[in-house]
Design a protein around this nucleic acid. Structure first.
Lengths: 312, 312
DNA sequence: CTATTCCTGTAGAGTCCCTACATGGATCTG
DNA sequence: CAGATCCATGTAGGGACTCTACAGGAATAG
């Protein structure tokens, strides 16, 4: 049984169509189709079935594809082993991130990696609104993602390896002259009646706003919704409303025109993870980048300790 | 990086010479040499070095070869998974055994497997004196071996998977007219002064004889040494001495001319294992045979319970 | 020293896989 | 309903890879 064929099956499981697999693997659809047909003949049972003008995997096909991951993990472990023998984490690592995560962590990470040398990191940012972050692991070695659910990540952990990088508190952003700016800590009840600058539907912070309104016993008045925090900050600085912002990244160009206040009585934080396909997570170069990410995240948390002491 | 090349490296680690690997894999030494050279170039560091007119693996080479096992295990697990989907443990399984183990277990195992069907088991016996049983796992899917050390098997467990099949008591074999035949249980002291039919140096039972002499406080008088228990039985039946024999297998053609007596005060037993290379152990057909071996071993133990109740 | 054993190099044949191109079916659109 | 589009799948041929056959070099045994 051939590994390259099994690999194709796994790609098919991740991408859903032969055409997509062919595009991702730089081949013609015909080649992919032929190889899958051979694999199916070897397996002795149907792995795919027609669905409309495409195909879908059968249960057996999905199971085989999953086992392909285990094989890939073993292979990458072997490769990492000999990279370790050469003590040479050389290679290219690709990384996708949500905007504020990249802003907060990536400059420091690239600095750390430059100090090591021999390893190039290609980063790009993705729109949290339009992209499915776990699925991006098919195209990137590392995907930085955030979630509000403090419990175990809601990522599909069987297919994706998740490494926790940090927990970032969410603060309430106010214009400097705002009456609440005089308080040390804010309670949910303080926020009733305020005009909110929120986030688009489905964004992680959405849930926190909902929690606040639940704690206050009154719905919040969300007058604007922006995905980009810079727009939110501009609105807050202009005195047009208050917002929830991740405290380590908030500020930017508006640092002097925005006041950040801790909130109590509601769990307001986001959790930042590095997501990887399990086999890619074994690569020595990838592990090196993840180590740098964790170190940088720890440094960011430490640098902000004076401003945001750990909450109860 | 190519799996077939990694597989060759593992074969080299197990067999020690390119010529042997070539013979085992049905290739010419030239082909093996070429592939290993390519692997070495890919790895970027020397994997072998000359030693006399042969070669030996470097440390890096050995480490890589070991990782090849993990990859092979993952692949065989995947293969087994799809065999399970077909519910079809078809295939050929080869088995090597020590003589008395084969005599005791294999007829029943073949019967059990015939009842299932679709699976052929090739058995052959090996001389415990001249063969290194763990090393036989390179050539056979399953190797039956026995050891006297009750503790964890002394097999190299990192490279070999060991499944315990049974513990077989060792009894004292006497000719029917022997004075000790009247006793229910024998003590080590009873055996002082007897003429012993022993086993060649290095056989497992050797250790038990040593333990008896230690318990009795007097050396045993070993007058003959035979590897084949039938010869030993013939000598005991002829009244030429007493011997230690595994109780489930002892007797044979001489069952009426030999008396078996339990021994107390000394741990006298041998442990029977199935040894396999870890990847081969994952094959569905192999697992099916091992299941049959365990079932047959349990049946043998149960059938002999009336004769040999469990010892304290 | 000669024979033997083992590893390695070269040239050529066979096998396998991919591309280019064409076909057939399903879906969408005007 | 007809044409356009998308997807999967066949066929033929070219290219890469790996094997064998054979030869040569180095170390060892008798």
């Amino acid at each position: 049984m051939d590994l390259r064929r099994l690999e194709l099956l796994r790609e098919l499981a991740e991408r859903g169509s032969i055409t997509e697999v062919a595009r991702a693997t730089h081949r013609t659809p015909s080649a992919v189709s032929q190889q899958l047909r051979i694999l199916e003949r070897e397996a002795g049972l149907p792995l795919t079935e027609k669905a409309g003008r495409g195909i879908v995997l059968t249960d057996a096909g999905r199971a085989l594809a999953r086992s392909a991951t285990d094989v890939a993990v073993a292979i990458e472990q072997a490769t990492a082993l000999w990279d370790e023998f050469r003590n040479d984490p050389t290679g290219e690592v690709s990384l996708a991130t949500f905007p504020t995560g990249g802003q907060m962590l990536l400059p420091g990470v690239v600095n750390r990696l430059d100090a090591v040398g021999g390893l190039t990191l290609h980063c790009s940012d993705r729109d949290p609104e339009s992209d499915d972050f776990p699925a991006l692991t098919a195209d990137f070695d590392i995907v930085l993602a955030h979630t509000a659910s403090s419990a175990a990540m809601n990522w599909p952990t069987t297919d994706v390896t998740a490494v926790k990088l940090m927990t970032e508190p969410l603060d309430i952003a106010l214009p400097p002259g705002h009456p609440l700016a005089a308080k040390e800590l804010l309670d949910p009840e303080d926020l009733i009646g305020e005009r909110w600058i929120g986030v688009p539907w489905g964004y992680p912070f959405e849930r926190t706003i909902h929690d606040i309104s639940a704690a206050a016993g009154s719905p919040m008045n969300v007058v604007q919704r922006f995905g980009d925090t810079r727009v939110t900050e501009a609105f807050v600085a202009a005195g047009l409303g208050i917002a929830i912002l991740p405290c380590y990244t908030a500020g930017g160009a508006y640092r002097s025109e925005i006041v950040l206040k801790n909130l109590r009585g509601v769990v307001a934080e986001r959790h930042i993870f590095a997501l990887m396909r399990p086999d890619r997570a074994e690569r020595l170069a990838v592990r090196t980048v993840v180590d740098a990410l964790r170190a940088e995240a720890d440094a960011v948390v430490a640098a902000n300790l004076h401003r945001n002491p750990p909450r109860p």
